[in-house]
Simulated assay, not measured.
Amino acid sequence: MDDRGARALIELNNTFYRENASSFSETRSAPWQGWKEVARTFCRECLEGRAAGDPVRILDMACGNQRLASFLESALPHRDIVYCGVDSCDAFPATASQASRHMRRDYIQLDALQAALDGAQQRLERIAAHGNYDLSCCFGFMHHIPGFTLRLRILRSLIELTKPGGLIAVSYWQFMRDPRLARKARETTALAMRERLLPQKAACALEDGDWLLGWQDSPRSLRYCHSFTDSEVDALISELPVGLAAEICRFSADGKTGDLNRYIMLRRA
């Protein structure tokens, strides 16, 4: 995918979230089932034997309304947490107070995709300025990243922001496995193409696995999403530089069928 097409699809999603942040957030309050396994793995792999007073640093890329922070605060009740949420849209209302007894919340407004396309490393370094992380999470975001190259670039950035020995947890949405979601994706994409609801650069940029989804009762409020296959996930992991990180587990979770997201957890070398 060329940069022009990628930028057009990124702007489509930026517009969607600016216009629908409140209503979207209202439907995103409960934690995902897969997060429980991420927390269990993190505790087992990184926190056993670690002094209770040593703060845990957690990065949440594309944090939205920061509900992951609220989940982690309850999942790690005896740990002091320094949480850093990053998102391009600052219209999302946080699900809880920014301050609590055991968690400090920081927030960075940053369009990481545009920064990665621009080669603007200094903008991405704003995240690193808050410290290297024990756990770097990216949930509900990879499907909004257009093209293999940019997905790999973001995954590598997540790993490089993580401490040696720390963990990286990433989810990959596989919504075309669900008959209802697959039908909606096909219908909405066909409508958008038929009625030319997309800028031409965005329409021409769509690749295999790329779809358009509407929102609530409006098929014209469009967002770009990619439905991953297992082989695509394998390809992303295999393209990481040798010695950068090692996969420690993968599993499926979420949705009524329990398999709408494929999770990968890596350990930073």
Rank of each mutant, 00 (worst) to 15 (best):
residue 216 Q to V: 14
residue 180 R to N: 08
residue 159 I to W: 02
residue 89 C to Q: 05
residue 122 Q to C: 07
residue 67 R to G: 05
residue 215 W to C: 02
residue 15 T to S: 13
residue 21 A to C: 14
residue 75 A to V: 05
residue 128 A to P: 03
residue 171 S to G: 07
residue 9 L to Q: 01
residue 73 E to G: 05
residue 134 D to N: 00
residue 127 I to H: 12
residue 169 A to I: 00
residue 118 D to Q: 08
residue 80 D to V: 08
residue 192 A to W: 07
residue 160 E to V: 00
residue 203 A to M: 03
residue 152 L to I: 11
residue 33 Q to T: 12
residue 142 M to L: 13
residue 258 G to E: 10
residue 110 L to C: 15
residue 146 P to W: 02
residue 257 T to D: 14
residue 258 G to I: 13
residue 45 E to N: 06
residue 18 R to N: 14
residue 114 Q to H: 10
residue 234 D to S: 12
residue 28 R to S: 14
residue 174 Q to G: 04
residue 165 G to C: 06
residue 265 M to C: 12
residue 188 T to G: 04
residue 104 R to G: 13
residue 16 F to Y: 11
residue 126 R to N: 08
residue 250 R to T: 07
residue 228 F to T: 09
residue 256 K to Q: 12
residue 14 N to A: 15
residue 12 L to A: 00
residue 269 A to C: 07
residue 166 G to Q: 02
residue 261 N to T: 13
residue 58 I to W: 04
residue 136 S to L: 01
residue 190 A to H: 12
residue 25 S to C: 04
residue 206 L to S: 02
residue 234 D to Y: 09
residue 94 A to Q: 06
residue 234 D to L: 14
residue 92 F to T: 03
residue 141 F to E: 02
residue 215 W to I: 07
residue 240 L to E: 01
residue 47 L to N: 03
residue 218 S to V: 12
residue 109 Q to L: 09
residue 268 R to D: 01
residue 252 S to L: 13
residue 168 I to T: 01
residue 253 A to C: 11
residue 13 N to I: 10
residue 68 L to E: 03
residue 61 M to G: 00
residue 128 A to G: 15
residue 4 R to C: 08
residue 12 L to Q: 01
residue 57 R to D: 04
residue 167 L to N: 12
residue 152 L to F: 09
residue 268 R to I: 00
residue 231 S to Q: 15
residue 151 R to A: 12
residue 177 R to A: 11
residue 200 Q to D: 13
residue 126 R to H: 11
residue 189 T to H: 06
residue 181 L to W: 09
